[in-house]
Structures are given as C-alpha cells and as structure tokens.
Design a protein around this nucleic acid. Structure first.
Lengths: 204, 204
DNA sequence: AATCAAAATTAACGATTTGTTCGTTATTTA
DNA sequence: TAAATAACGAACAAATCGTTAATTTTGATT
C-alpha cells in the first residue's frame, strides 16, 4: 500500500527475511529465537520489535510477500474456463507457469515445505484463488451442480496441487514443470484413475 | 508394543493428552507452556519430563495414538483394487468409513485442523497408506504407467482427501459422510471436471 | 495385609528467552 | 544543513526452561 520510504526500514526488513530463511535452513522454526534472528540479520534485538510482533508475524509476512511476488508477477490471470467449458491447453499453461515460478524460488519453497509451512502457504493460496480466480468464473455460477460442489472442489484441487508441489520441489531428481503439469491437468480433467492407467468396475 | 502396566502411567499420559486438547481449544499451540499442561492435567511439571521430551513430542504421540485408533479399528483393510480394476463400491465404502470415524472423533479433528496440524496428520496418514494400502496393490505394480505416476498420485490423492476432511469437519452445517464420500469417489474415478458438471475443450 | 519397586511430588538451581524501557547515536529525507 | 526518525546499546523484571535431589505416595506382587 504505502511505499516504505526509509531505506533503513527496507534494509532491516529484508535482512530479517533473509535471516529467517537462512536459520530455517539450519534448524526447526520452533527453536529459532529473536536473538538469533537479530544476530543473523546483524541488527539489534530491540529493533526486531519495532517491525514485527513476534517470529510468527515475521514468518507470515515473509510467506505472503513471496507468494504475492510469484502469483502477481508470473501467473498471469487468464480465463481458462468459459461457459462451462474447460480449456485444457490454457489450464495446462497456468499450472506450468505456477510450477516454473516455484522452481525459480526453489530455495524458498524447499525450506518452507521442509519446515511444514504447507498450511500457511495453502491458506494464503486459497485466499488468492478466491480473490483472483473465482471472480473470473462468474459466468458459470449458474450451474446447480457446480454451485453445490464448488467449495469442496476448490479445497480438493488446491490441496492436491499444494501436495504435489510439496512433493515435487522437495524430491531429488525431479522431473520438469511441463511433465508434472501434464499429470496434474490429466488428473483434474480425467481423474486419477485414468492417469494411473486403471479401469473401473462400473462403466458409469 | 509392551503393555503399559502401571495405572499411574496410563493416568498421567491420558491426563496430558486431554490437557493438550483442552488447551489447544483455547489458545495457539505455540503459546502453550509445559507449566500450563501440567496445571491442566493436574500433575507436577517435573512429571511431564518423565514421559515426554517436550510439547512437540506430546503432540506427535497424541496424534499418532488417535490415528492408529481410528485407522486400525474402523477402517477395515479390504482390497478395493484387483488386477488393475478399481471397485468403486468398495472404495466408496472405505472413504465413508474414514469420514464416519472422523465424525466420531469430531472434536479431536476440529481442534487439530484449526490448529494447523494438517501436516502432522497428513504425514502419518501417508505413512499408513504406504504401510497398509500399498502392499495390497502389489499385484498391479506391473503397469508401467502406474509405476511412473505412483508417488505423485499418492501425494495428490492423500492431500486432496485430507484437504476435504479439513474443510468438511470444520465447516458449519456440514453434509453427511455418505454425500462427501460420493463426491470424493466421483472426483477420483472421473475427475473434478466431471463432478463439477463442466466440459472439456478437447474430446481426448 | 505387608512389602518392595516404581512413579509422582516438592523445592530449588542456573541458564535462557522474553518484551519493554531509556537515553544516545547514526542515517535518511526534505 | 536541519529536522525527523530509525537503530543502537544497556539494562530490567518476569517467565520458561530442563534438570537435580530428596522425599512421599501409589500400585503391583507375594
């Protein structure tokens, strides 16, 4: 909102952000103290309290800053659903974009996911979906079935995507964003059973 | 493993379990102190350290105890997949069983999910899936496509189910286990797009 | 019922962390 | 250059931590 005028403020906050990541790389978040953060950021401990309420406050703002950066810069808002029709190729492009952004910020996500910050990220991700994506789907809210299953399906898809990203970005010898995106899109459009090459006991 | 012989031990540990839940209902886990747990459980603070390493240890064991109870008692291990064929009705029964068990332990899950303990639960849930379910799928490991997409799909499905459970058990005026199970099975067998009543731009 | 082993209590300890205060110094902005 | 304000450094009481040791209480066993 308001521009952070003073250079000193920007410097302090940036240092604390980086200090948090560096420390979370080494040890569990719960064991990190304000003094350690101040040491790592090379600021006085009292200065920390001029900017953040506590370390949880710092973490939350840090995560939001990163996700805003990624979602707003790299994931361009496009309409991949029109009049009840899912445009697979557009959807594929969006997922690929997200995965590429994640890969660019590899270190951040690896640290966060290995520190079990999934929920913090997921909650804010869902918030962004509600703010950015859902308004674009207004023209299809007429469908009764969609309306009935809207909430549960959003939860389901976002949880699934976050789960995949968590697994993907923290696994060794991971495949490329395109390949993962292909699977994700396949699962969402045709279902996991189809992607796995299985068959169903009932035809319909 | 070994039976907890002494009544006093059982009593102390049970008191601490309940104290943890009671306190987590009122305040964030990060702000809970050992002294508070001891007070609530009506035991001495030193006694806590005779049983648990710290409060994270208590939380983890508490979660595992609950999930073991639920998964081993209520979710009977059945084979819902044979020779590459998914038996929809059996799968539906399993999901319903899980949701019913969650509903029986409503308070536990509400507290845990509202306290952002999803990951603790998810991780152990995935562990159980690997131990209990995957061995039963041994006869279909031959499929190349399955093997290639196995890990990612497990992450995807488990994440999705946990996400749905989280949303479901913490939402007001929630629907019954059967109805949710039907949606979940529908999503997994036919895909979210179908369940939402949408169409795809490409036929295949 | 009596005995023994184990669990829980009590009090105390030094060390660490916390959140806040103050007056002083350094830097930025205008 | 001058005024504003951010950061520093030191110090404070309060709370929490994890552990110790001696003592008391409890339960399981015979």
């Amino acid at each position: 909102m308001t521009k952070k005028q003073d250079l000193r403020v920007q410097r302090t906050r940036k240092s604390l952000n980086q200090a948090l990541l560096t420390l979370m790389e080494k040890k569990k978040f719960s064991t990190i103290t304000i003094q350690e953060l101040a040491n790592e950021a090379m600021i006085n401990r009292a200065t920390f309290y001029l900017h953040y309420y506590d370390k949880y406050d710092l973490l939350e703002i840090c995560v939001k800053d990163y996700l805003d950066e990624i979602m707003l810069k790299h994931v361009t808002p496009v309409r991949h659903i029109r009049e009840g029709v899912v445009y697979t190729d557009v959807f594929y492009a969006i997922v690929t974009d997200i995965l590429k952004s994640v890969e660019i910020n590899e270190r951040f996500f690896q640290i966060m996911f290995q520190s079990n910050c999934d929920n913090l990220i997921k909650d804010y991700f869902i918030e962004l979906v509600h703010d950015k994506f859902l308004p674009q789907l207004g023209d299809m809210f007429s469908g009764r079935q969609f309306e009935r299953h809207k909430n549960i399906t959003i939860q389901l898809i976002v949880s699934a995507i976050i789960g995949v990203i968590t697994w993907w970005i923290t696994s060794e010898d991971r495949e490329g964003p395109e390949e993962i995106a292909q699977i994700v899109v396949g699962v969402i459009t045709k279902g996991p059973v189809y992607v796995l090459g299985l068959k169903m006991s009932e035809p319909n």
